[in-house]
Amino acid sequence: MQNIPKNMFEPAAANAGDAEKISKKSLSLWKDAMLRFRSNKLAMVGLIIIVLIILMAIFAPMFSRYDYSTTNLLNADKPPSKDHWFGTDDLGRDIFVRTWVGARISIFIGVAAAVLDLLIGVIWGSISGFRGGRTDEIMMRIADILWAVPSLLMVILLMVVLPKGLFTIIIAMTITGWINMARIVRGQVLQLKNQEYVLASQTLGAKTSRLLFKHIVPNAMGSILVTMTLTVPTAIFTEAFLSYLGLGVPAPLASWGTMASDGLPALTYYPWRLFFPAGFICITMFGFNVVGDGLRDALDPKLRK
C-alpha cells in the first residue's frame, strides 16, 4: 500500500440535498407527449400533410391566375396540362383552384364541427360527470337515447329540411356529433374527480367552476384532443357523403364533396374531375387519422405496445 500523506485528502462536500436532486429536467405530460409524438414517423407525416394542405388552401387561390367560379365553356373538360394543372371541369373552371377553395370549405366544416362538439360535449359531459347522482342519470339517459339514433340518417333529414348552406351542414353534424364527446368527457371527469389533488383543492375551498376548469378539464384534455382530431375526418367524410346526396354546399361554392360528386357521372371520360378532389379527401382523412392515432399513443403511455 502506498503511503499518501493525510493532507492530500480532502473531505467530499456532504450535502444532503444533492441526493434528492433530479438531474434530468422534469418533463411535463405535454412535453413528454411531444417527444413521443415526434418520434412517431407516420404521425409526423400526417401532421406535415395537414399543414401543407392548410397552407395551400390559404395561399393557392390567392396566387392563381384563375378564379374558382368563373366559367369558360370553350375550355370545358380539359385534361391536366401546363395551364390547368388538375384540368378543368364541365364549365371550364380550373380544378386546381377549385380544389384549394374546396379545401377551405371542407376543412372549415371539419374543424368547426369538431369545435362545436367540443364546446357542447365538454359542458354536458363535465356537468353530468361532476354532479353525478340524479343529474347524471337524467343527462346520460338523454344522451343514450340520442346516441341510439342513427346519426347519419338524422343529418340527412335535417339537411332535407333546413335551407342549403355551409352553416346548416355544421349545425346538422353537431346536433348528432356532440354526444360522443360528452360521453368521453363524462368518463374522464368521473375518473378524475376522485383524485387527491381535486380533493385537496376542494378542501382549500375552491368553487366547482374552478375545480372543473382548473383541475379536471385540463387533465382530460388528452382524450378531448384525440377525440377532436378524429372528429375532423368524420366530418369531412359526412360532408362529402351529403354532397353525393345533393345536400352539400350550394353552387358556385365548391367543397371536395360537391366536386367529387359532380365528377362522378363523368368518370368514364373525364376521370380527373373525380380523382383530384377524391384524392384530397382521402389524403386529408389519412392525415387527421394518423395524427389522431399518434396523439392517442403519445398521450396515453399505457396503450403503447
Binding site: 367524410f237 362529402a240 357523403f241 382521402c282 389524403i283 382523412m285 387519422n289 394518423v290
Partner: peptide
C-alpha cells in the same frame, strides 16, 4: 390506414 382513409363511395 388506407382502408380507414378512403370513404366507401370513393
Amino acid at each position: 390506414i388506407f382502408g380507414i382513409s378512403v370513404p366507401s363511395f370513393i
